[in-house]
Write a protein that binds this DNA or RNA. Structure first.
Lengths: 131, 131
DNA sequence: GTAATGGCTGGAGTTAACTCCATGTCAAGG
DNA sequence: CCTTGACATGGAGTTAACTCCAGCCATTAC
């Protein structure tokens, strides 16, 4: 059970955090092994996730959704651990990612256009078939 | 070497087709094993790809680029083999895919917005650090 | 005729990102 | 005290989509 329920410093067990993030406990442990997250442990050696972890995981998931491989997210996480000296480098990564996202959106839109044309062709073919 | 060079009925060996599509020969053979493409064979049992195959592969690559798994592309390919009776079903698939593409674009744009905010925050932090 | 080139097959190996499992610990409830 | 449930660890297994390899055949170049 989490301590300080509803208080300022929420702490979650891995099971609770799993529900909160919609990630399986196995995935959460995997992310820890990959050094993406670093939850504290309680006196029984159980993981304690915080609201900060929640925000960080949300960010990770956004990166994942936009096709950033774990390998790169890991690099970002490592820089983050190193503190403010890596601010510039991290921003460079974000800028680069922004650029690739825009490329991806463009590509999607292009493909959407082609798909729409194809669907129209299909509609015509089906109409022809009907009569 | 391809026959009818520059003519109406271009035929490509797997090596030529590999360059044409930017897919490795191994990938092309893999796609055949997965029944995505069905090139003819010449008397020496070598694959002969045509311009029609090129158009079909281009379409496959568009589907892949928009995150359709090979499994589904395979289903579409199978329907395609079955001829005009499956027109409607194929169009349903395309429509469904269209819908998921739009969802993906929206998600990307949402994430892009968040990323932009984050980048702004970083810029502010770096500016603070500088002085 | 021999060597180089490109293609063929079946099957093993790879990578990413999980997912599952056996075994063990710990705290709380009855 | 004993059971139950959540959690811990190390390591094996899974899936997708290739990628690589060994051993063999056919065509072309000298």
């Amino acid at each position: 059970m989490s301590r300080h329920q509803g208080g300022l410093f929420m702490v979650y067990s891995i099971g609770e955090f799993s529900k909160l993030t919609s990630l399986s406990v196995d995935t959460l442990r995997y992310y820890e092994k990959e050094k993406l997250v670093h939850p504290d442990r309680n006196r029984s050696n159980q993981r304690q996730y915080t609201d900060k972890d929640k925000m960080w995981v949300d960010f990770i998931l956004r990166l994942k959704e936009t096709a950033m491989p774990i390998r790169k997210i890991k690099k970002y996480a490592r820089l983050r651990e190193e503190g403010d000296v890596t601010l510039k480098e991290r921003m460079e990564m974000l800028r680069a990612h922004r650029h690739s996202m825009i490329k991806q959106i463009e590509k999607f839109e292009d493909n959407l256009g082609h798909l729409d044309k194809k669907i129209e062709t299909y509609e015509a073919m089906i109409a022809d078939h009907k009569q």
